[in-house]
Design a protein around this nucleic acid. Structure first.
Lengths: 200, 200
DNA sequence: GCTTCCATTGTGGATTTCCGCAAACAACAA
DNA sequence: TTGTTGTTTGCGGAAATCCACAATGGAAGC
């Protein structure tokens, strides 16, 4: 929830400074990196609102970087910049979930617009991710048995049925069920179902 | 559930016949159209599994067609073919939800692969759409009051609370609630919640 | 050995849901 | 006028949920 801003990755110092300057001229602070590796290792995950990546880099290509970001930094909106892009590359990037794919020289107005949109989307995604994170940590608090009972409850089974299937007393099911609700912070099976519907 | 196959739209008879022949050589039947308008007006919606569209057409461009398909025929996977495509066009197409964007001359193996994938996706989408259609038609059977009570139930409210909020007797709520379950073909609030989670 | 956590079960009562049977009232169509 | 549909309500009982209080046994950790 802090100051999420675009991070620029480009091996050409002149280019990335020009980009940063352009953004700054539109009141957008940014962070620059000279390589994808530096970004992945040193960047503060919470500071990054979107990525602007030059696709023609030594060491690690933008596409390759994109793959790693998917795993590490969650789903950050990535704007690819390229001087030598072709259609298949652009298609693949977008299909893989890139936010945009722009050719250099890029129209300034267009770029600023896309950066703003990417930051907006990045913020939304971060919120969703944070929410999912909360749910996951709640789920982690459940014991195995509780998770088991929860599954049954989510399948709409009655306590009696669950008790029968698991070969335990109904009272036990009630206790687990109650504890699941308590730990998950809900008060009914419906709430639980809706809470988890966004995750699963 | 009948024989969904690719539909080819191209104003050049030689091209579309060549495409149809190529597909046939791989055991894929297809239907050809000489214009987007013809397709939109005359095609049987249930016969179409995916679209192969040349983007350089008179009358109506592929992009324009794509827009109309979105509205009319649901979400059919669309493979764009183009001889003069550029990166921005491709990016826009994919972002708008096109299945793929291929440049001519297209590699035969690649095309066949993409067509097969598009057909597969088209089948899945058709199933999902059919399922949603069913749910929608079920929802349409509900009376206004029933929908109202359903909303409350989905919010996890107890009958007592609902009755209080709506200023009616608890028994009335029970009746509506019961009828909602009956009409929607579920047996509990949880099932109802999960049934609707995919739609809403 | 002791503590903590987990799973288990019981009793008993309050609350809620589920449901059949019965019926009143209004709006609207045949 | 008659019939249908939607909304409303009551009664009463069976079934299920919710919950406080109380307790046992096993496994893991200190």
């Amino acid at each position: 929830m802090t100051t999420r801003c675009p991070h620029i990755i480009d091996d050409d110092a002149a280019v990335r400074d020009a980009l940063a300057w352009l953004l700054k001229a539109h009141d957008i602070d940014s962070v620059v990196w000279s390589s994808a590796g530096d970004f992945l290792q040193q960047s503060e995950p919470t500071s990054c609102g979107c990525l602007i990546v030059d696709i023609r880099m030594p060491e690690m290509s933008g596409i390759e970087l994109f793959d790693r970001i998917r795993r590490q930094s969650g789903d950050l909106p990535v704007i690819f910049l390229t001087g030598h892009g072709d259609v298949p590359m652009a298609v693949q990037a977008i299909k893989d979930g890139a936010f945009d794919f722009l050719e250099k020289p890029v129209d300034e107005v267009l770029l600023i617009d896309r950066v703003r949109a990417a930051l907006r989307l990045g913020g939304e995604r971060a919120n969703v991710a944070a929410h999912n994170q909360e749910i996951q940590s709640l789920l982690k608090e459940l014991t195995i048995r509780e998770r088991e009972i929860m599954e049954c409850v989510l399948n709409g089974k009655l306590n009696k049925v669950i008790a029968d299937e698991l070969g335990i007393a109904m009272r036990t099911v009630e206790v687990h069920r109650s504890r699941v609700f308590e730990k998950m912070g809900v008060r009914s099976a419906v709430e639980l179902s809706q809470l988890l519907s966004s995750v699963n």
